[in-house]
């Protein structure tokens, strides 16, 4: 059974990370670190059994598709872009 409050809090954290990434314009070491942390959190959600399609992320909480983890994109039934970064 998913803890919905915990899921919501992680989704909020994802929103904060994506906002910080946008602030940095995706440049610099911190941006790379953010992408790494972001996908780690996504994997935690997926490990818990969170359904990325039925309970998907708000677009303003997401990174560009090329930086979203492959596992997430498959779960969310999104196509994997040609320039995918390999997360």
């Amino acid at each position: 059974m998913l803890n919905h409050k915990a899921v919501l809090n992680i989704q909020r954290a994802l929103g904060d990370l994506s906002g910080e990434w946008r602030s940095l314009k995706g440049l610099g070491e911190r941006s790379e670190e953010i992408v790494h942390q972001y996908n780690q959190l996504l994997n935690i959600l997926l490990d818990w059994g969170w359904d990325a399609y039925i309970d998907g992320l708000d677009p303003d909480c997401m990174l560009p598709d090329r930086l979203m983890g492959r596992r997430y994109l498959i779960a969310a039934k999104d196509s994997i872009p040609p320039d995918h970064a390999g997360y």
Partner: peptide, 15 residues
């Protein structure tokens, strides 16, 4: 118009 960043809103960008 822009998606929220770490600091939002700014003087020039809102959603």
């Amino acid at each position: 118009y822009g998606f929220p960043e770490a600091t939002h809103p700014t003087e020039t960008v809102r959603n």
